[in-house]
């Protein structure tokens, strides 16, 4: 471990000393004990952090905020608890409608995406529209895979061979309903983008996804999802199923 790495890790060390026994810090702390320059930096860092905490905790809170919260919630509660019988009757009718509706819909619906897949497409869209950022950017997919491995994010042990030849843009990690997901974005030769999502397989995904890719066209998005070992992968692009299929050969 060099000093730059040690500084990176010690940046998360809390000045109160609560983290002294955390194994992630042990090596960096040891490095600081051995290296006087790093030791001085660490002491300055702790002093800086302590003062920052004091300064931020001294920010005054509006005097009427507590009263507003308590009064506002009290008013909301009283509105919510009025006319309970009507409320329950409406809820029961609504509940029955939902059950009946879902039974009919289940029989007639086309192939669709699961909740996490829709959420993941939302994340990709925000990346494409530049509304959110990559965690890290690189034109080399192997670098992104390595970064995801080192951050314990779900990632393919080996990228599908047709993707390995593409140039990448970056990757991002996020979670859908508490389940970690990673996405690597690639540049296609035709100028478009291609996205590989990876998440960990679960008992539910065992039932839904198999080794053979399941294609779903949703709006402008073409997606293919499959399971391989302990991972579930989804490949997505804005385009047609035929375009997507060429990356799965």
């Amino acid at each position: 471990m060099d000093n730059r790495e040690a500084k990176f890790i010690l940046g998360a060390y809390r000045p109160g000393g609560q983290d002294a026994n955390d194994r992630r810090f042990v090596e960096a702390l040891e490095q600081a004990r051995r290296d006087s320059m790093l030791q001085r930096w660490f002491q300055d860092s702790i002093a800086f952090d302590t003062t920052m905490t004091d300064k931020l905790r001294a920010i005054e809170v509006p005097l009427d905020l507590r009263g507003s919260i308590l009064t506002g919630v009290k008013v909301s509660r009283s509105l919510r608890s009025s006319k309970p019988l009507i409320k329950w009757a409406i809820a029961a009718v609504f509940f029955l409608s939902v059950i009946l509706g879902s039974l009919v819909w289940r029989e007639t619906r086309p192939a669709h995406l699961a909740g996490w897949q829709n959420e993941a497409l939302g994340v990709i869209s925000s990346l494409v529209r530049n509304e959110s950022r990559f965690d890290i950017q690189s034109h080399k997919p192997a670098e992104l895979v390595s970064w995801l491995h080192s951050n314990h994010a779900p990632v393919a042990d080996k990228l599908p061979s047709n993707l390995d030849n593409l140039e990448s843009l970056g990757c991002k990690t996020f979670s859908c309903h508490g389940v970690p997901v990673s996405v690597i974005c690639f540049m296609r030769p035709d100028g478009g983008l291609l996205h590989l999502l990876t998440t960990n397989a679960s008992p539910l995904s065992d039932r839904v996804f198999q080794a053979e890719a399941k294609f779903v066209q949703q709006g402008e998005w073409a997606t293919a999802t499959w399971r391989e070992g302990e991972r579930v992968y989804m490949l997505a692009l804005e385009g047609s199923r035929d375009q997507l299929q060429s990356y799965l050969l």
Partner: peptide
């Protein structure tokens, strides 16, 4: 977010 991302963002 992953722990590594937190450390990176803090640093």
């Amino acid at each position: 977010v992953p722990i590594g991302t937190v450390m990176s963002r803090l640093s």
